[in-house]
């Protein structure tokens, strides 16, 4: 475009060529402008996200201890083979599914009920409740873990004290060193932290529902439960699918800090998840290859899941236009 302009105008205006050229260079600059504005973000993303991601994919086929002065050695698919013979890794997949499914009531079911229950209250009490539910969300995982560790302390914790007092248990339980309890406690704490956030998200989605639907439904004699099933749930479906996607993609990251703080994955790997295993492969066993192989594998797995959920959302989410 600019090239042809140059040819047609420049010869006829002998004195004006400089102006035209300057204008053209300005025009060229204009074309670069968007890239200039994007440069800092894209450069930093390349350095801190995409370069490391590609490097991790490369490391998946190498053996390396990360010790300075040593370099990675190509080992083909060995790391993947080791991965599938690694018992703690296989166990961690089961736990990851446990956490992901276990978090759904906390990120969808309970918050949806809470949002509906508080929706029609006067705004003062509504805001009070929601603000209270939200407090756990803003607290740091380390602080939260320290507090719960104290509450669940085997000999002096309040939870054991109360349960013994109420004759629900005979002996105090060592929650974090009992394979049957450890992952349930971690699930509970992660869920406790999530409820407030999801409640607020569902509340926001609810306020956009047109009240007339409910008036029409109650004139037709539908009770509040039927209104919930036939009006609220379908109209909340985009939010439900959004929270479902978030839960599936991120639950392993949400539980990470609590696993590290409370059980370090134990006892006997009963509370670990895939991301925690990746961390341990890398920074306890100093096996960068194994960690990277797991990273590559789950990048593909979660990518496929996200793609699937995206398709589900397009097909089933009901939008009120």
């Amino acid at each position: 475009m600019s090239q042809s302009l140059d040819n047609t105008i420049a010869p006829s205006l002998s004195g004006g060529t400089i102006i035209v050229r300057r204008r053209l260079s300005k025009k060229k600059l204009r074309r670069f402008k968007p890239y200039l504005y994007l440069l800092p973000a894209v450069a930093l993303l390349s350095i801190w996200m995409y370069r490391p991601l590609l490097y991790t994919f490369y490391l998946a086929f190498q053996k390396w201890s990360m010790v300075p002065g040593t370099s990675p050695v190509f080992v083909g698919f060995d790391n993947f083979e080791h991965l599938f013979h690694n018992k703690s890794f296989i166990d961690s997949i089961g736990n990851t599914i446990f956490y992901t499914v276990g978090l759904l009531p906390f990120s969808i079911l309970i918050p949806m009920i809470l949002a509906v229950v508080t929706d029609r209250m006067e705004s003062k009490s509504k805001n009070f409740y929601r603000a209270m539910f939200f407090i756990p969300m803003i607290l740091a995982p380390v602080s939260v873990s320290a507090i719960w560790r104290w509450l669940f302390h085997p000999s002096n914790g309040l939870v054991n004290y109360l349960l013994v007092k109420l004759h629900l248990i005979k002996e105090p339980i060592a929650y974090f060193s009992d394979p049957g309890f450890a992952k349930w406690i971690i699930l509970l704490i992660t869920g406790w932290k999530m409820i407030g956030f999801s409640t607020i998200m569902f509340s926001a989605a609810l306020t956009s529902i047109n009240r007339e639907y409910y008036e029409a439904a109650s004139q037709d004699g539908a009770g509040s439960f039927r209104q919930f099933v036939h009006i609220t749930i379908p109209l909340l479906s985009p939010m439900i699918i959004f929270m479902l996607t978030m839960s599936i993609l991120f639950s392993s990251q949400w539980t990470f800090a609590y696993i590290d703080m409370l059980t370090t994955g134990g006892p006997y790997g009963s509370s670990t998840n895939i991301y925690y295993e990746m961390y341990r492969f890398a920074f306890s066993s100093l096996n960068a290859g194994l960690s990277s192989a797991a990273a590559l594998l789950f990048f593909v797995v979660f990518g496929l899941i996200a793609l699937g959920l995206n398709m589900v959302s397009r097909k089933f989410a009901f939008y009120d236009n």
Binding site: L53, T56, L249, F256, Y275
Partner: peptide, 20 residues
């Protein structure tokens, strides 16, 4: 490029970043 970062957990880029 922007949207795809949702699929990159920090655990899968921690080693190269740590090295850098």
């Amino acid at each position: 490029i922007l949207s795809l970062t949702w699929l990159i957990p920090f655990q899968s880029i921690m080693i190269p970043n740590y090295v850098l």
